[in-house]
């Protein structure tokens, strides 16, 4: 489920249709009740796979009231919730999700605040605060790190990320998401500038190096969700 609106503007965004808040050709207004009816349609598949709903966007926390209200209903119906978030949300909005989410898919991009501002448009202060909160309360969390050649994928940034995660007490897994070009068609259709047009995905070697560096911190490292 994709919720519209995102406070960030990452160059490599693969869901550019989700960035703008409000109603446009990519979104539709839906009530919590209507959404629950849609979700219930997939019940046979969720039951079989022990799966559930993954909330993504955009940034789902940019619609905090709706999000909390639907997650409560999911919890009451026994539906597993994964929240795919960039972590940039006010502390009270973020903390309101803590008892409702079964699994956080939590993005870390840069530890250097200057770089974070340059490539995403916002400071990483809230991202770090909220991540520490998850660690402190030992919430089930998978850190996701997008590997964008020459942007996030520098050895220095990867080491920063490794330093940070290894300083946490409970969170020990990071999933590498290598840059891909799936969204090129979307940028074209939407008629917006794609600043990474023509950039190639990182080579297998680049990904292996990132994996080795992070592994060196004693972390469990996945690529695209697989070991």
């Amino acid at each position: 489920m994709f919720l519209k609106g995102c406070p960030l503007g990452c160059l490599w965004c693969h869901n550019p249709e989700g960035i703008a808040p409000g109603l446009d050709e990519f979104g539709r207004i839906i009530s919590v009740q209507e959404l629950m009816t849609e979700i219930e349609k997939d019940r046979p598949f969720m039951d079989e796979s022990a799966g559930g709903v993954t909330l993504s966007g955009g940034e789902p926390l940019s619609q905090p009231e709706f999000l909390v209200s639907m997650m409560r209903q999911c919890r009451d119906s026994g539906i597993h919730i994964s929240l795919d978030t960039c972590g940039h949300a006010p502390a009270d909005a973020f903390d309101a999700t803590l008892d409702l989410v079964d699994l956080y898919l939590y993005d870390l991009k840069f530890m250097d605040d200057e770089l974070h501002r340059r490539y995403t448009g916002v400071s990483n202060g809230l991202v770090i605060r909220n991540c520490k909160k998850l660690d402190e309360l030992d919430r089930k969390t998978l850190i996701r790190f997008p590997v964008i050649p020459e942007i996030t994928g520098t050895a220095e940034n990867i080491r920063d990320i490794g330093d940070f995660i290894s300083s946490l007490n409970n969170i020990k897994t990071v999933d590498l998401l290598p840059f891909h070009r799936t969204a090129e068609g979307k940028y074209e259709r939407m008629g917006i500038e794609n600043q990474l047009k023509g950039v190639d995905p990182p080579s297998e070697d680049d990904v292996a190096i990132a994996k080795r560096i992070l592994g060196g911190y004693g972390l469990e490292v996945l690529v695209g969700g697989s070991a």
Partner: peptide, 12 residues
């Protein structure tokens, strides 16, 4: 596509 799935007809 590279760890993601999409509708084929929507790709470039």
């Amino acid at each position: 596509v590279a760890g993601y799935s999409d509708y084929f007809v929507d790709l470039t």
